[in-house]
Amino acid sequence: MLNFNFAPFPIVETDRLILRRITNDDVNEVFELRSNPETMKYIPRPLAKTTEDALEHIAMIEEKIATNNGINWGITLKDNLKVLGIIGYYRLQPENYRAEIGYMLLPEFHGKGIITEAVKRLITYGFNDLKLHSIEAVIDPENFASEKVLQKCNFIKEAHLKESEFYDGKFLDKVIYSLLNQ
């Protein structure tokens, strides 16, 4: 079974991006992400209503890092360290050598290849540094942009779960994509 250890926190870079630790100083950016109906459209979680909600989200991220149960990075451009998105491994399954990747990005940065670049780098991190055997992504079947990112990164559709989650008074479908370390 794998043992994850996120201390010291790994700062990860790509050609254009720095994936860095999110701190309480990023509360306004996290609030902007988590309170935006467009950003949260396919994430079945309540919208942040206050900066206190954003601070609670940051605290949850920190708790997962401290206990080695998950890791999230703030997505920033190399020339501007303002957080414009969040990416990370949300559910770690050390017994299965598997983890779930997830991400969100402010709408004004959509369509620029930022998420694809970040996902490709975290695939490398997941397989080389975390020693994962497989990475999964769980998306809303209507989230065509996310599906396109996963396909560009060589993920394969594994399942379409019908009405598998109940949120906000309705049943939601989920699609699972995965990538094996080969």
Rank of each mutant, 00 (worst) to 15 (best):
I114A: 05
P94V: 08
E56N: 13
T50V: 01
K170S: 09
I71L: 07
D168Y: 12
N181H: 13
N181P: 09
E117F: 07
I71N: 11
E13F: 12
K152G: 13
P107T: 10
I58N: 04
K131C: 13
I101R: 09
N69Q: 15
T76Q: 10
I123D: 11
Q151C: 12
I18N: 08
A54W: 04
T23G: 14
E56S: 13
I86Y: 03
D140A: 07
D53F: 02
N36L: 10
D26W: 00
K82N: 14
E95V: 08
P94D: 08
K120L: 13
P37V: 14
M104G: 01
A99W: 04
L172T: 04
R16L: 05
D173W: 05
T51I: 15
P37T: 11
N154T: 15
P37N: 11
K82S: 14
R45Y: 09
P141M: 01
S178H: 11
N28Y: 11
V12G: 06
N3G: 04
T39V: 15
N96K: 14
D26R: 05
I114G: 13
V30K: 04
G111V: 14
T76I: 09
T51N: 11
G111S: 13
L130Q: 14
Y167G: 00
I75R: 10
A159I: 00
G102A: 03
K157S: 03
Y90V: 08
Q151D: 08
N96Q: 09
R98Q: 06
V175Y: 01
R21E: 14
G126M: 07
T50K: 10
